[in-house]
């Protein structure tokens, strides 16, 4: 069932979750109830090759580019307020359909226009990011953004990577200064 992953911890998905073929990355938060700009959190994925960078700009899966790898990675859509129960944004990943030259997928969460709106995760209620076994819904890792990343505006949540022909998961949980643009640049995306 739920694997407790400490920061930087590794877990072998094939061992911990045998038969795992597809995962779901979920991002959830509560809509703002006070006056002011909505909290607009975004889940994004970088599909990386050997060098740890995207192979092309198409490998950057975010609110304006929802589908990657011919459907193996699918962002289910942008939520701009946090309205709704449970996960407010989800990305589905079918591990079996990921081509061999893809070595890792990096999952990040950012607050849209955080700097302009002077927002951070701590101002958002019940913000979390988690990764699930799509089959059965078992939670593999979860971070509480509101509580443990309160002063951050962007975070590298974690990655799944190939290691000796199996998929492993690494929980990173590292705050990142600058938001989605600099994150994309850092992963080799040509941000226009």
């Amino acid at each position: 069932m739920a694997i407790s992953l400490s920061k930087g911890g590794n877990v072998s998905l094939s061992k911990e979750a045998p038969g795992l073929t597809s995962i779901l990355v979920g991002l959830g938060w509560d809509p703002r109830v006070t006056d002011g700009s909505d909290f607009d959190l975004d889940a994004s994925v970088f599909i990386c090759g050997e060098n740890g960078k995207v192979r092309s700009d198409e490998d950057f899966i975010f609110y304006r580019n929802l589908v990657g790898l011919g459907g193996a990675v699918e962002h289910l859509g942008d939520n701009r307020t946090g309205e709704g129960e449970g996960d407010d944004e989800q990305v589905k990943i079918d591990l079996s359909k990921i081509p061999a030259d893809v070595k890792k997928l990096v999952f990040v969460v950012t607050i849209h226009e955080a700097e302009k709106k002077n927002q951070n995760f701590g101002q958002v209620s019940n913000a979390f990011m988690r990764i699930l076994n799509q089959d059965g819904g078992a939670e593999l890792a979860k971070y509480d953004l509101s509580e443990d990343y309160s002063t951050e505006t962007a975070m590298i949540f974690g990655e799944i990577y190939r290691h000796n022909e199996e998929w492993k998961m690494k929980a990173i949980g590292a705050g990142f200064a600058g938001g989605l643009g600099p994150l994309a640049t850092a992963h080799g995306v040509n941000v226009g």
Partner: peptide
């Protein structure tokens, strides 16, 4: 939080004053 008390700075509110806050 996990059985212990913590302190959080919020700094959010309402333009509608006490009435909106009280309702909240």
């Amino acid at each position: 939080r996990n059985g212990a008390w913590k302190f959080r700075v919020v700094g959010q509110g309402f333009n509608g004053g006490l009435a909106a806050l009280a309702k909240h």
